[in-house]
């Protein structure tokens, strides 16, 4: 098991602080959880502790960005995305170079339960003009994404996990903004996965391989702007299409893929995500099993769908 993507973020931003004096980081009393405290320790002058004031933090981040800084505003995904109108006007409409860092994404946070889970954040951020939406799937992808984010022009939403994730990439990985990454070959079915569900999808492909089913796994780290090309190509080449995300089934990756295909290559899509419900408390493993997010459940779902 590798690191959580929030830890990878904290370590990377603390490193980048030396290289890029324009980086500033803000947090709303969760720096020990978002891991922005790693930056705070090294660069106390460029770290702003905002207390529990997410809306004000977002507005101040925008003001800093409009004055030449690149602002990383950090909190739990649910709390920060919840200050939607401030993100809409002060960040998106201003086209400010703010990076909204939403950690503790999905039911994967486990025991803390629904009010601490970011479950609708991709949907919200995706519908804001000027915004890009990214979700890395492991430590190395997070590191490369955060490096990229410093010089990106325009606002970004970056969604990170509380829980540790398997390592998928090695040091040779080259992050390409807006491009999907094919992780396994196969034409029987394709699964577009993002964030914590990428490694589950990969493990599912190994289970299915033993049964003679070849599953193509595609990692979508940039949900907006989405890689239309890889989606259309895979839909053409593969029998069945799945999407998988630890997020409400409405408005997230599944919707983004459906939007692309319905206009370019109409095809049946099976979306895996939270079926328009809130989460609940439990261990991450128990929750992933209950909602069908673990590798075993994904494999069963794909196999049974192929038989239909």
């Amino acid at each position: 098991m590798g690191k959580s993507t929030r830890l990878a973020f904290g370590e990377t931003i603390a490193q980048l602080g030396e290289l890029y004096p324009q980086i500033v980081v803000l947090d709303a009393d969760l720096s020990k959880s978002t891991m922005s405290n790693l930056f705070a320790k090294k660069f106390p002058d460029r770290f702003f502790e905002m207390g529990i004031q997410e809306a004000n933090m977002i507005g101040i981040s925008a003001g800093l960005a409009l004055s030449g800084k690149v602002s990383y505003a950090c909190s739990f995904a649910c709390f920060i995305a919840g200050r939607y109108d401030t993100i809409r006007v002060s960040v998106a409409y201003n086209k400010a170079n703010v990076r909204i860092i939403g950690t503790h994404a999905g039911i994967g946070i486990g025991e803390d339960g629904t009010t601490q889970m970011g479950l609708e954040d991709i949907s919200l951020m995706r519908s804001l003009p000027n915004f890009s939406v990214c979700q890395p799937c492991d430590e190395i992808e997070t590191r490369e994404l955060i490096k990229y984010s410093v010089t990106h022009n325009g606002p970004m939403y970056i969604r990170l996990t509380r829980q540790n994730l398997d390592d998928i990439f090695d040091d040779n990985y080259k992050f390409e903004f807006g491009k999907g990454v094919q992780l396994s070959d196969g034409n029987d079915a394709v699964i577009f996965a993002t964030g914590s569900l990428v490694s589950e999808a990969l493990k599912a492909s190994k289970i299915l391989k033993q049964k003679g089913i070849n599953l193509r796994v595609i990692n979508i780290h940039t949900i907006k702007p989405i890689d239309k090309e890889i989606i259309i190509k895979s839909a053409r080449e593969c029998g069945l299409i799945f999407t998988a995300e630890d997020h409400n089934i409405i408005g997230g990756l599944g919707s983004a893929v459906a939007e692309v295909l319905s206009e370019n290559y109409p095809a049946k899509i099976i979306r895996i995500g939270l079926p328009d419900v809130f989460g609940e408390s439990g261990t991450p493993e128990a929750l992933y099993k209950k909602y069908g997010f673990d590798a075993e459940s994904l494999a069963v779902k794909i196999e049974s769908s192929l038989k239909k």
Binding site: G59, G63, L66, S67, K69, D85, T86, S90, N94
Partner: peptide, 19 residues
């Protein structure tokens, strides 16, 4: 800064002052 959704411009001004 774009304004008009009330309550937001002051935070942006604070960010500019901090910078």
């Amino acid at each position: 800064s774009s304004t008009g959704s009330l309550g937001q411009g002051l935070s942006v001004a604070i960010g500019i002052a901090l910078a």
